[in-house]
Every structure is written in C-alpha cells, then in structure tokens.
Amino acid sequence: MTVTSSRPTAVGTVASYAFWGPDGKTLAEFYAAALGWKVAQEFPDENGVPTAFLVTDGSTTFVFYTAKDFKAPNWPEDELPFHLDLAFTDVPAAERRLLELGATKPGHQPGGEHWTVLLDPSGQPFCISAGWSESS
C-alpha cells in the first residue's frame, strides 16, 4: 500500500551561512572587505560581549562566530567539511588584496591554473578563481 499526502512538501531557503573562528569580528571584517560587503550587525553573548557578526550584501548573509576553543584544520592533512569558493574578475589583483587583508597562501596548491587556495585569518582554507562555467 502506498501512502500519499495531500500536504505540500516543505520548501526552504538558506537564510545564512555560519562560520566559527577564534575571533568572529576579525573574520567578519576580513570577509566584508574581501567581498566589498559590510558588517551589518553584531550579536552579544549572555554577558553582553559581541560574539557573532552578520556580514551581508543585502541578498546573501554570512554570520561569523567567536569560538574560544576553535582549532583551524591542519589542511591539507585534515579533510574539510566545507569551504568557500570566491570568484573575482581579476584573480591576481584579488589575491594581492586578500593577502594585504590578512590572508596567507599555503604552499600546497592543488588547483593548478583553475583556482588558488588561501587561508583566512583564522587559518581556514578558501579558494579564489574566476568562477565556474560549464566548460570548467
């Protein structure tokens, strides 16, 4: 016997993407500057200390949390549960700017000509490229 429901299937959208690091404010400021966005809001913990920082362009939202016990992955040895891929029209200029903002460039670069791996100020890897296309 097949059971069908007349109720519609719930459909959701992603409200925000959340990231943890040793200093949420530093991460928020880094990614806001990297993307040309702004830190739009701060959220305090139970003691009134800001520990969460909302960064947005008006349509996409990232939240950066301060996690006292945060440990950056030992990449590439540690597998990553996820990371960001950021696209820029001028990748070499973006790389220079991101390094000036506090990113670092690890020696291990598995992307060849396709992407560059950088580490954000918390030590978490992210990639930069010209973006993806169907021919990529």
Rank of each mutant, 00 (worst) to 15 (best):
D57V: 08
N47R: 13
C127L: 02
E42I: 05
S59Q: 08
V14R: 14
P22N: 15
P44E: 11
W37A: 15
N74F: 07
P121C: 10
S136M: 06
E134R: 15
T26V: 10
S6Y: 14
V49T: 12
D85F: 03
A103C: 12
Q41W: 07
P22V: 15
E46P: 05
A32H: 00
P50W: 08
L27R: 09
L118I: 05
F53L: 10
S122Q: 02
D23W: 04
A103Q: 11
A103P: 10
H108D: 08
T60K: 07
R97W: 11
A33I: 01
A40Q: 04
V3C: 12
L118Y: 04
E95W: 10
F43E: 12
T4P: 09
V14D: 09
T9F: 15
A28W: 02
T116Q: 03
W115N: 00
N74Y: 02
P106S: 12
C127D: 06
T13S: 14
F126W: 00
N47C: 03
W132G: 04
R7S: 12
W115G: 00
E79W: 11
G123F: 02
F62K: 06
V55N: 01
R7K: 10
H114Y: 10
P73K: 09
W75R: 08
E29Y: 01
P44D: 08
I128Q: 00
W37M: 07
L54A: 06
F64E: 04
A33H: 04
L99M: 07
P8D: 15
V49E: 14
T4F: 10
E100T: 11
T51M: 13
I128A: 00
T2K: 13
L118T: 01
K105P: 06
L99Y: 12
L27T: 09
D85M: 11
S133C: 14
A32P: 03
R97T: 14
E77F: 11
F64A: 02
G36Y: 05
A130S: 12
L98C: 09
P50H: 10
D85G: 08
A87D: 13
E95T: 05
W75F: 09
W37I: 13
E29G: 03
A130T: 15
M1V: 15
G12W: 15
P121Y: 08
D85T: 05
K71E: 09
D120P: 03
P92N: 06
A94L: 12
W132D: 04
L118E: 01
Q124E: 06
D78Y: 06
L80Y: 06
F126K: 01
V39N: 07
G112V: 04
S136K: 04
